[in-house]
Design a protein around this nucleic acid. Sequence first.
DNA 1: CGCCGGAATATTGTTGACAATCGCCAATGG
DNA 2: CCATTGGCGATTGTCAACAATATTCCGGCG
Lengths: 226, 226
Amino acid sequence: MKSMQPKPVVRQSIENRAADSLREFILSGRVRPGTRLTEIALADQIGVARATLRTGLHRLAGEGIVVQIPYTGWQVTELTETDVWELWTLRAGLESLAARLAAQSGDAPSRAAVARAYEALLAACAKERLKQVNACDFALHRSIVEAAGHARLAGQYRLVEQQVRLFIATSNTCVAEGMDDIVAQHRAVAEAVLSGDAEAAARQAWHHNESEGMRLVAWLRRKAGH
Amino acid sequence: MKSMQPKPVVRQSIENRAADSLREFILSGRVRPGTRLTEIALADQIGVARATLRTGLHRLAGEGIVVQIPYTGWQVTELTETDVWELWTLRAGLESLAARLAAQSGDAPSRAAVARAYEALLAACAKERLKQVNACDFALHRSIVEAAGHARLAGQYRLVEQQVRLFIATSNTCVAEGMDDIVAQHRAVAEAVLSGDAEAAARQAWHHNESEGMRLVAWLRRKAGH
DNA sequence: CGCCGGAATATTGTTGACAATCGCCAATGG
DNA sequence: CCATTGGCGATTGTCAACAATATTCCGGCG
C-alpha cells in the first residue's frame, strides 16, 4: 500500500536544483537569445549563494544553453542559421542511429511506448491543438531514442533536443507545415521502427529531420533577407 | 613579421586549467577505473582551492570521465561491456555522419589534412611502432570529423573519443589485429572521403568502428570468462 | 562472535569575503 | 577633434570557513 506511507524524500543538491531551475527558465523562451545573465542577479532571484549558482551555470554552458563570457557575464545562446543546420543534421544522425537500434532490438515495452507516443500525436493532430502537437512530436522522437536502449545516445540526444527546444521557443517559427504533413512524416518513421525494419527506420528518421532542418534554414534565410 | 612581436598571453581561468589537468591525468591511464578521488587531495596536489577544483570535477562529470558520489567522493568512470558497445556504436554513428559530410562538402584544406593523416598512419604502420600507430589512428579519425565542418558534431565526437581513450589506456588491450588490418580498414574510409563518395564514406566509417567495437566486446567477454 | 546503534571522522556542499578582470566614461595630450 | 590613458564601478574568479552527509569505528548486548 503505497498510499499508507509518506512519500520518499528526493535528494538533490542545491547546485543541481539551481541548474535545473536555470535550464527551465532559459528553455521556456522567456529570455531572449544573447541576453546577458549576471550571477549576482540570478543568485538573488533563485535564492542561492552566487558560488552555488556558478556550478549550475557551468553545467548549462557544457550543455550549450549559455555561453560564458569571462569576467563579464553569461549569455543565453544565440542560434544562427549554421547552428540550426548543425542541430538538425546532428539530431538526424543521432535519431537515425536510434531508430535503427530500436527497430533491431527494441523490446516489447519500449515498442509499446513508441506506439503510444505515435497514437498520442495522431490524437493531438486531430484536435489541431498546436501546443499539444508540438509536445507529442517531441515525445514521439524521444520514445524512439529511448527504445534504442543506448544510454549515451539518449544523453547526447537530450543535449541536442534542449537546443532544438531553445530555438523553437525563441524563434517565432512553426516547424511543421500542417497536420497532414506532421502525420505523414512521423508515420513512416514509427511504422518502420515498429515493424522492425532497421534500414527503413534509419533512413526515414534521417529524412524527416533533414528535411525539417532544411525548411528551417530556408525560413531563417527568408527572415534575414527582409 | 610575427617574430617581431611578443607572444600573446594565453588567458585561461584556474577552473579550466584544473579541469584540463584532471582530464589529462585521468585519460593517461595512471589511475584505475573505479578509483575514488577526493577533492581535498586533488586540490592539494594541483595547488588550487577545493572549490575551484570542484568546478573542474563537475566539468569532467559532464564529460563522463568521472562520476560524482554525493558527500562521498568522485570516481574514475568504469567502462563495462555495455559501455564499450555504446561508445563504439555512438562513435560509429557520429563518424559515419562526419565522413558523409566530409565527402560531400569538405573543402580542400580539410581534405588535405585527411590525406596527410592517412599518410602518417601508413608511415607509422610501416615502422611498426604501436604507440605511434595508435596516435595516428586517432588523428586520422579526428581529421575526418574536423573535415565535416560541423562544430557540434566535432564537440560531441570529442566526448566519445575521450572515453574511448580512457578505455584503451586502462584496459590493457590492443585494439587492432595487425598492421595490415589497420591499413585496410582505414584505407577504405580515407579513400571514400577523399574521392567525395558520401555513401561509401558513411558506410565504411560505420563498418570500421562497428567491427572494432564488436571485437572489443568479444575480448571483454573472453576476459570475463576466465 | 555477530549485530546494532551511536559517535567520530572524513569528506562534500554551501556560503560569504577578498582578489582579479573588463567595460565604460572622463580627462588629457597631440 | 581624435586617440590614448587612467580611474571607477560592476561584475566574475578564487579562496577559506562553516554546514551537511555518508562511512567507518567502537562499544555494548544477545
